[in-house]
Design a protein around this nucleic acid. Structure first.
Lengths: 196, 196
DNA sequence: ACCTGAACACCGTTCAAGT
DNA sequence: ACCTGAACACCGTTCAAGT
């Protein structure tokens, strides 16, 4: 019993997931500029340097956040589903994430593809597309092209959303235009299917 | 003659365009992280605070850079050209800019649409699309959707280009894949034309 | 009008020290 | 193993002062 009690007491006060979760809350409330090691530590009630026990740098903190967001995406293949249906489902979950956590989403949409947590995810999507019947190279190309559209569109959308912008006449990709996402995605899928 | 000589002597040593030009050179050579007021001043051989005579803040410096880049895009309508041809030409010049100045391009592709220099440019493209025969709302939608694809694709490309990345199997949007840009753009245009 | 140095309020991160 | 305070090398920008 004594050892078990000691183990419980020795459980870290902070974990990598706690830190990433608090970081997402901070970003959604105060914006991306507020994501500093010092401010995050203050929100968690610890010293700035305590964070470095669980993340190796600010970039690693961002990687932890991105991991948290990717876990919320829907990219597994369902029996009998074609690649168009899979892409529709995957990018819809991506769009919903952007609407739900717009400010943190910017970190995900602008992450490098060679970040391990991103590379693993992309590899998983390619495997899903292969299960849906695509050849490996086709899967990669279709993922690359639809990803470009989805990330580009949603990046513009989250950056130009609300923010007291004065409803300018030429607000391409402004509030309300999220419906255009679905239209662009369908155009993309139709064009790619035709060229296959 | 005396007044003229005085006028020449009083011409500012630094101009907004000089500063933006030097900033682009600095970014292309040393990367985006190197774009600080202090380092830029050093490159220009002046004191950091001298920059503030010509740009009001670091954000304004970025706006000046974006203006320099936008001036290199080709978006005016030619007689008899349809909107597909205009979009092909406009986004090809955008792609070429990304290839020529990849690190500065990131500033342009991730700029907010309500930045005056960007908003003016988007308005000009909408007018060109109208001259090519599109209704105003169609022009805005088609610009918004193709912009999302082009910016998203090229943003990924410039971020994953060279950089000694270890040629991973799943490098979607990696070096060499710039050709996929043209394919995605054609798919986009075909899909949009069909849905018009 | 244009340029400048010193100073202020921030950063991320290293280091040595504590438990 | 986990947490911490002090310190270092940077930032953008304000201010008062120079020409």
């Amino acid at each position: 019993m004594a050892p078990r009690q000691i183990d419980l007491d020795r459980r870290p006060r902070l974990t990598r997931v706690d830190i990433a979760t608090a970081a997402v809350e901070l970003v959604e409330r105060d914006g991306l500029d507020a994501l500093t090691m010092r401010r995050l530590a203050e929100a968690l009630g610890c010293a700035p340097m305590s964070l470095y026990t669980h993340v190796s740098s600010r970039d690693d903190l961002v990687a932890a956040i991105i991991g948290l967001l990717i876990a919320q995406l829907e990219v597994d293949h369902r029996d009998g589903e074609d690649w168009q249906g899979l892409m529709r489902r995957a990018w819809t979950s991506y769009r919903d994430l952007a609407v739900r956590l717009p400010r943190s989403f910017e970190l995900l949409a602008s992450a490098r593809n060679d970040l391990p947590v991103v590379a693993d995810h992309l590899a998983a999507v390619v495997r899903s597309l292969e299960r849906a019947g695509l050849e490996h190279d086709h899967a990669r190309q279709i993922l690359g092209i639809t990803d470009a559209f989805a990330s580009g569109f949603l990046l513009v959308w989250v950056r130009n959303r609300d923010d007291a912008a004065p409803a300018d006449e030429f607000e391409v990709g402004a509030p309300g235009s999220i419906a255009l996402f679905d239209r662009g995605l369908e155009a993309m899928i139709a064009g790619l299917a035709a060229s296959l």
